[in-house]
Simulated scan of single mutants.
Amino acid sequence: MTSDETASAADMKTSDHDGVLVAVISGELDMVTVDSVGKALFDLLDAGPGGLVVELAVDFMGSSALSMLLKLSGHAQSSGVGFAIVAAQPAAVRPLMASALAQVLPLAESVDEAVKSVRKPGEPAEQPDQSS
């Protein structure tokens, strides 16, 4: 087996939901890919968005990814940025449940629910003018 056959890959796509960034991670989130994905997520967080949602649409997620998500959650909390994780794929749910991090990390069942949960209180959702 060559190194090309064993190489893992992860992809991240981001979208803006009225100031809340949603990052969708796909592929394999393991010790080979977690550093680059983690750096990109920390960079997004450091840009000061209205919130950050990470959707784990992964085929595999290793323990290094769990550690990165825990650090990312702590950084979001200390930065005052709303943060949530959406994990619907079994490859993401299983490690979160087995490690008991599902009880610690802010999980949501859908992207819409996550976006609502991280939006800052008093921040309008899609209402351009609220003058009385």
Rank of each mutant, 00 (worst) to 15 (best):
G19I: 07
V20Y: 00
V22I: 11
V22T: 02
V24L: 04
I25T: 04
S26I: 06
G27K: 10
E28I: 09
M31K: 10
T33W: 04
S36R: 13
K39N: 10
K39F: 02
A40C: 01
A40K: 11
L41R: 11
F42W: 05
L44D: 08
A47W: 12
A47D: 15
E55S: 10
A57G: 14
S63N: 14
S64A: 10
S67Q: 15
S67R: 15
S67L: 12
M68N: 00
M68V: 06
L69P: 12
L70K: 00
L70T: 14
L70M: 07
H75R: 15
A76D: 10
Q77H: 09
Q77R: 15
S79A: 15
G80E: 09
F83G: 02
I85W: 04
V86Q: 08
A88Q: 10
Q89D: 12
Q89H: 14
Q89L: 12
A91Q: 11
A92T: 11
R94S: 13
P95T: 10
P95F: 08
P95C: 11
P95K: 12
A98L: 05
A98G: 00
S99H: 08
A100R: 15
L101M: 14
A102L: 02
A102V: 05
Q103H: 07
Q103A: 10
L107M: 13
A108D: 04
S110M: 04
S110P: 00
V111Q: 07
E113I: 01
E113Q: 13
A114N: 03
V115T: 06
S117P: 09
V118Y: 09
K120G: 04
P121I: 01
